[in-house]
Amino acid sequence: MADLHRFANPTRFLKLAGIIQPWALAVFLLSITVGLYMAFFTAPADYQQGESARIMYVHVPAAWMAMFCYTVMAVASAVSLIWKHPLADVSARATAPIGAAFTFLSLATGSLWGKPMWGTWWVWDARLTSVLVLLFLYIGYMALQGAFDDRVRAAKASAILALVGFVNVPIIKFSVDWWNTLHQPASVIKMGGSSIHPSMLWPLLIMAIAFKAYYVWVLMVRMRQELVANKVRILRLKQVHGG
């Protein structure tokens, strides 16, 4: 526990964030440039789906990030509930809007892919529906965080929501195996190795790195904002109480 609480010290964290932030931005800019170049110029068109398959290079990384951010939020919420680690709630709060944005993007880009390939913008298929539920969980989490004047109660209530909602993450992952879905099954991460050709796998992985670096960069900005906002709240309280 002593080790964990060393990082709970906001001054220490701010120092670390100051180092991580420019690196994350640099990794993002580099990988998004390489990733986009490969997605449009080196990756071939799909033999069945033609050029529309290029939507995959934003759709799949966005969907991975949607689940990754929720997992981060759930783990941080558990740490916040169990150990009352002050940075845990801050990181979960800061993650929620980024995760919601990626979830929205995975739905929107999927829809733009579905229209020409499936002939419809939307179907109530298990994969699509469970991702829509994920978007609602993010929105509910953010609403709950904002619904309390007392930050401790807000943290507790929203952490419980994040943990209960985590049951949806494996449902999303395995929805394509458990039910007959229009959505295609996993092809990158599966038993017996990836079934996607390297010429398509590489741009996909580089775009995934780009999105992850973007998340780390924006997370650092948002966490720093939360910590300064905490200081502002303390100063205002002191003013009210004539301190």
């Binding site: 050029e51 529309s52 934003v58 759709h59 929205f104 733009l112 892919w113 924006v218």
Partner: peptide, 28 residues
Amino acid sequence: EMGGYAAFVWPAYGLSAGVLVVIAWLSI
């Protein structure tokens, strides 16, 4: 023209870029 899929490919990339830029801008 994206092999006839321009109306789907470009909005997908445009929307993604737009959302990522807006979230970063709001956060900063």
